[in-house]
């Protein structure tokens, strides 16, 4: 198991390095930051001066190494627009998003596990069809639209929930539901299909032969195996959540990382974009890393391999 964790950790670091190269290259391909920062009236000398101040006259590989070492230290430079260090903006907003996504995860899984199980166990019945309709809608309706509808109902008509901010638990209800519904639909569908496979398996038949109670067959023997395929998508959910958060945080004016990303892109704030994308990448990578460890914990077959 230790060996497995070490190997996965090294793989994660390598992936992050590759991501940093991609970001570094993309940003340099998307325009000259010096031109963007200088006023219209600047002279050729001003341009050269700024270029050397920013270290852009050095060879590319040196630039990359400087960028990399700064990034490791948490220094992503300053925002072009606000002059505020990028790392500060990230530090302020990321925890808010983590809180929101955690609540969304709890809501999503609390709903999807029973829903997926019921749909599989009662396959072909009214329950299954209802679950299919609900999860189908949850997946196909855009998250921001769900957000707008929630705003219309609970803020405009019923006036029982706050529209923006994150001070009380009431503030969490709508954005977390919004993200949670999307997550729930995917997980429930995945769980249903893997549960159906598992319920058909020989070891479930064997458990029944032993005289195991049906509820134990489902919750112990079948669920743990079905969760394997759900968990293996865990890293992907985090990625989905990051994108989802950009939309939901913008709709509900949630002071989070997603809104920061949105602002960075809209303002073409390159240092901020670099910092945001790299951080998001790191979040998704570490989520994948922990997912794989969880997977290995759930499935003994993984532990011994590698």
């Amino acid at each position: 198991m230790q060996r497995y964790i070490v190997i996965r950790f090294i793989q994660t670091v390598i992936t992050l390095l590759i991501l940093s190269i991609v970001i570094f290259t993309l940003v340099r391909m998307s325009g000259d930051p010096v031109l963007l920062m200088l006023p219209e009236t600047a002279t050729e000398e001003d341009y050269e001066l700024m270029k050397s101040q920013l270290g852009l006259n050095k060879p590319v590989y040196q630039q990359y190494l400087i960028f990399l070492f700064d990034a490791v230290k948490g220094d992503f430079g300053k925002s072009i627009r606000t002059r505020k260090p990028v790392i500060l903006s990230i530090k302020e907003t990321l925890p808010n998003s983590i809180k929101l996504v955690t609540v969304a995860f709890v809501i999503g899984f609390a709903l999807s596990i029973p829903l997926g199980i019921v749909a599989a166990v009662k396959k072909g019945t009214v329950w299954d069809n209802m679950a299919r309709v609900v999860t189908g809608l949850g997946q196909s309706i855009p998250t921001f639209w769900v957000g707008l509808m929630l705003l219309q109902i609970f803020v405009v008509w019923l006036r029982i929930l706050p529209a923006s901010g994150m001070d009380t638990w009431q503030h969490y209800v709508m954005p977390a539901t919004c993200l949670g519904i999307f997550l729930m639909s995917g997980v429930a569908r995945l769980l249903r299909s893997s549960m159906l496979d598992v319920l058909d398996s020989e070891f479930v038949k064997m458990a029944r032969i032993k005289g195991v109670r049906e509820s134990v067959v489902i919750w112990k023997h079948a669920l743990r195996n079905s969760l394997l395929s759900v968990v293996s998508f865990g890293g992907m959910y985090i990625a989905i959540m990051v994108t989802g958060a950009i939309l939901v945080e913008t709709v509900f004016a949630w002071p989070g990382f997603g809104r920061l990303a949105y602002a960075a892109i809209v303002n073409q704030d390159f240092p901020l974009i670099q910092g945001v994308v790299l951080t998001a990448g790191a979040v998704v990578m570490s989520a994948n890393f922990f997912t794989d460890i969880l997977y290995a914990y759930l499935d003994p077959r993984i532990r011994v391999q590698v």
């Binding site: 064997m206 032993k210 195996n225 394997l228």
Partner: peptide, 25 residues
Amino acid sequence: MRKVRGKKISMILQDPMTSLNPVFT
């Protein structure tokens, strides 16, 4: 019937590779 299963009647299935739950010892 559940109490009869395993206690009075038991069964061995065809494929030993799939008849045991992979996630339990």
